[in-house]
Design a protein around this nucleic acid. Structure first.
Lengths: 355, 355
DNA sequence: GTGTTTTTGAGGTACGTTCCTCATTTTGCA
DNA sequence: TGCAAAATGAGGAACGTACCTCAAAAACAC
């Protein structure tokens, strides 16, 4: 049998109350006694029964996940993955509320965040661009003892407790090496598309991509990034125009969203499957395009993993417990048609069902 | 507050005892009453508090992971990942014992397995080649109520409860498409190495690989598999010999173990970094070789994930609970130098430390 | 050595569930 | 209608921990 607090009390020759004081770092115990108890703990190999502890504390966790109200498939999939992880976590006294904010309104976001501490939350996961207003809001939350984790895109200067997502520079490098090798090193031109050149993620991806192409594939010519601002129409226009003027284009690197519009345009131009197309995020549509051969490779992150990780990290932070860093590291995944994961990851399934 | 069993009793107008009977599927409740209780459950959105339930049951789980006593880095890493997951799971009343069997002795394995039910285990995870003796042993375990999950390599005909690992055919296809694209479709020859042509995994990988090469890259010429039987010396010999006779070799697909010997040989022949080398399993050595550019790509599975998944599945099976299939699916990961995960995945770290 | 403060002990209640037992009510059947 | 069987209720103990109170003991200061 596993040792319990009673066993420790007996072993250390003290009372249960004293063991309890030591275990929970309550004051009023002599250093000597603390030592004795700790020795007993070590000797018996005691591990606190977390289930029983939480039960006794009758502690429960109410977390908030705050996402932009964008309708992009990526955010939708993420929301579903989070909701899913939340409902699974209900068995362990964790509740997750999904909150949305107007994508282009940092002040509305700040107001939303400011209201959270009053509503009984014990942690916040946040996906938002880092603005000065946001930085202050995050600091405010942390000042009130609410842990804040940044989701998908980091908030390094806001002093978040943790970042859950991938290193976008490395993701860009990965795209770069795939593009370079798939094109045999050149010669040829590569079109680069991004939603906005101001977004940190886009900048980092582009930097990583160029880094690799310049160093390892000098025969390739990467064109300046084209901004699509999340608009399908705009994407359509710039891509059509550019492809008409640049007959040497052999590859397209789509750093941002709009994969749907992209594959559509390529189809209309009769270029489906004739170019090497690399994009990010395995949304339901990207998956389809991959299956049909319209997209060559997708650089992605596992949203189910990301969602579960979010809950674990929030919980650990709320309890001031250490993390299992290895488990929380989100990997940069490369998906080709051949290693497309089966369509049974809960988040993805629901996303498709909802689409 | 979350509803409890008492709330359900009140809502359904029955006693706590009856609710308990329904919840735990105990006999002696009319169908009508069962319905009423279930309605109350649905109405209040009750979710059983697993922590409290397990506490009350004072249930604990003792699991066995049975691995061959091979010293390959892969098995070592797997063992460490399992040990690690086991120690993390100690907080949730799960204990994992690592057992080893002589790699080439199916009968010793069968004896080992037969002894398990008597030793208080409530589940077994097993990595072993499927032999007739093993099939019977597995059936014996299951007949005694012990769930059995196959690890890494499947035991489809032994009636295992679950398989935790990747689809090797798809892994081979993935290797194939990478090889094909990296070589620009040809012309050129590809050397294929495997530990043994009898092992199911090798056969499936080879089949997947050929499937893609034949269909999509007819310009490439894949040579017959060379067997290395886990021996570095043998690998060295056959590779040297083959490369001397076949100057057109531009790629090597290493399906089995022996990556260490392979990179060494290539180094000695002055071919490091000059060939496209694709292998399996991100062992510490493969990681190093990847960093140095001696290996181009590694097809792998996340051992930390695999280990945690094993424990979750064993536990779910022991309790006859459903699985979160999405969470348990092990993905086929493609690792290049550019998306090499940081060296903080517990299993990998320990593996390196131990190496 | 007295008085004060600090440390320790003893004991209880609570958390939400499981799993008993025994008594009582309801149901089905002859 | 009566009787056995089935269904339900009432209550309690247990799981391992947290957290509370009050009393007793020990350590400390002067």
């Amino acid at each position: 049998m596993r040792p319990t607090v009673n066993d420790i009390a007996r072993e250390a020759g003290v009372s249960l109350a004293t063991v309890d004081r030591v275990l929970n770092a309550r004051p009023g115990v002599r250093a000597k006694t603390v030592m004795a108890v700790n020795e007993a703990i070590a000797k018996l190999g005691y591990v606190r029964d977390l289930a029983a502890a939480n039960l006794a504390r009758s502690r429960s966790y109410r977390m908030a996940a705050v996402l932009p109200d964008t309708e992009s498939q990526f955010v939708q999939s993420l929301a579903l993955a989070l909701a899913d992880a939340g409902s699974m976590a209900a068995t362990s006294r964790v509740e997750l509320d999904l909150l949305r904010f107007p994508a282009e309104d940092p002040h509305a976001l700040a107001t939303l965040l400011a209201a959270l501490p009053g509503r009984g939350y014990s942690g916040v996961a946040l996906m938002a661009p880092e603005t000065p207003v946001l930085r202050d809001a995050v600091r405010g939350l942390r000042a009130k003892g609410l842990p804040v984790v940044a989701l998908v895109s980091d908030l390094p200067n806001a002093g978040r407790d943790h970042f859950i997502g991938v290193d976008n520079r490395a993701a860009g490098r990965t795209a770069g090496v795939l593009m370079g090798r798939f094109l045999g090193g050149g010669p040829g031109q590569v079109l680069v598309l991004g939603s906005s050149l101001l977004a940190r993620d886009m900048v980092e991806r582009r930097r990583g991509f160029d880094e690799v192409i310049l160093r390892d594939f000098p025969g390739l010519d990467t064109l300046p990034s084209l901004e699509t601002h999340g608009s399908g129409a705009l994407l359509r226009q710039v891509v059509t125009e550019r492809l008409a003027n640049a007959p040497g284009v052999r590859g397209i690197y789509a750093m941002g969203d709009g994969n749907r519009a992209l594959t559509q345009v390529l189809g209309e131009l009769g270029l489906s499957g004739r170019l090497t197309v690399i994009c990010h995020e395995l949304t339901p549509h990207a998956r389809q395009a991959l299956e049909r051969g319209e997209i060559t490779a997708v650089i992605t992150q596992n949203l189910g993993h990301l969602a579960r990780s979010t809950l674990r990290v929030l919980r650990a932070k709320a309890d001031h417990l250490p993390l299992d860093e290895g488990q929380e590291q989100i990997r940069i995944e490369i998906v080709l048609r051949e290693n497309l994961p089966l369509l049974s990851d809960s988040g993805q399934v629901s996303a498709v069902a909802a689409a």
